[in-house]
């Protein structure tokens, strides 16, 4: 199988969920791959690698309803010094919200980048509840969709896939609250403290 370049666009690349999603994709891909963290990678080095592959998977978390800064920076750098090669760009995006559709705008930003660069847009997997799903009993659903994504990418057959925990919104609210309470407790911060209405120690007058 042809080599694929996996670009991790997370602002916390070395310890990110995107890294875990990229690793799951790599396992499902089965062929040769190379992963680069956009947070630290020199854009010139990214452009250099892009000359050597026909397929790229961009993995990133949703940030303020859009692509995160390392992805935006890379897009701009590639536009300024475009590689001669025009690889097919596939996308794996995750958000902490239950609805994968909340990632639609970010995916379409990547698609617009492809259009402006003359690159083919490949397949897409949007993962809702992506902050926690890998550590939940529904991990298998994410892994299953990632395998489907890998097959679609390998076959050059663009698909738009979605995955999320198959739970009600009410259940998700309770589960996410438990998740964040446990997260805060690891730092000795209570739920009440986390729920403060103050911003920088002040409430608006």
């Amino acid at each position: 199988m042809e080599k694929i370049l996996i670009l991790n666009g997370s602002p916390r690349a070395p310890r990110s969920n995107s890294k875990r999603y990229g690793a799951l994709f790599d396992r499902a891909w089965g062929g040769e791959s190379e992963t680069m963290d956009l947070l630290r990678a020199d854009p010139g080095a990214v452009a250099e690698r892009l000359e050597t592959v026909s397929r790229v998977l961009l993995v990133f978390p949703l940030y303020a309803d859009a692509v995160p800064v390392p992805v935006l920076r890379t897009f701009q750098a590639l536009e300024e010094r475009p590689p001669k090669n025009r690889p097919t760009l596939s996308v794996l995006v995750n958000c902490g919200f239950l609805e994968p559709e909340q990632c639609d705008v970010a995916v379409d930003m990547a698609a617009l980048f492809c259009k402006q660069m003359g690159w083919p847009m490949g397949s897409v997997l949007e993962i809702g509840s992506g902050e926690a799903i890998l550590d939940s009993p529904f991990r298998f659903l994410a892994a299953w969709k990632i395998k489907a994504l890998a097959r679609a990418v390998a076959a050059d057959r663009p698909r738009r896939l979605k995955a999320a925990m198959p739970v009600s919104k009410a259940f998700f609210l309770k589960a996410s609250t438990r998740y964040w309470l446990a997260y805060g407790a690891r730092h000795g911060v209570t739920g009440e403290e986390m729920a403060t209405m103050e911003i920088e120690g002040q409430r608006p007058s």
Binding site: S10, P11, R12, S16, P61, P68, W180, Y183, G184, R186, H187, V189, E193, M194, A195, T196, E198, I199, E200, G201
Partner: peptide, 11 residues
């Protein structure tokens, strides 16, 4: 993306 503003020093 450290989540510090949510879980370490809220706000």
């Amino acid at each position: 993306g450290c989540f510090g503003c949510w879980t370490r020093t809220p706000g």
